[in-house]
Amino acid sequence: MTKEQHHLRNLIIAALVAALYVALTYLSQMFGLGYGAIQLRLSEMLVCLVVFNKRYIWGVTIGCVLANLTSTLGIVDIIWGSLETLIALTVIYLISKRITNLKAKLATAIIIGTFFMFMIAAELTVLTKAPFWLTYLTTASGEFVSLTLGAFLVYFISKRVDLIS
């Protein structure tokens, strides 16, 4: 494959991951994968893919844009929520690149992904004057659970599926 063709392949894989993100978002809603107070957002597990290859940054961000098309907060979520995803994913990629151990990489993804929820909390605070720290606590804990479970799932998937090349 030439460099150009390799680039095209990465784009298409990213696009499929985006489609998967949207599909999983809707399926989580349809099949009620929430468990009591813990809402398992299945699509968030795809965030953990970023530790394998840079191309997933675009995939998950675009998936996030498309899934947010139906969000109640509309345009704010489409722009700001997707920007949050893009920034968080880029940081996860840049840091995990320097780590060799897969488990440590995934742990980094969980921590950084949870940390960046402050952007969503800030969105809600600015928009609705919701108290920042409380909003941060609730959104970040939800994200932490989703990402932790996601990291487990991605870990097992990576044993069977080639996510890197």
Partner: peptide, 30 residues
């Protein structure tokens, strides 16, 4: 919760596989 997450593994592996397969086919076609 643990049990339900475990039940997802046999769902997600084929799903991920088929997404990558679709991507490979589409790349070749394009």
């Amino acid at each position: 919760l643990i049990k339900r997450v475990k039940a997802l593994i046999p769902l997600l592996i084929p799903l991920m596989m088929s997404s990558l397969d679709i991507a490979t086919d589409l790349t070749t076609a394009m």
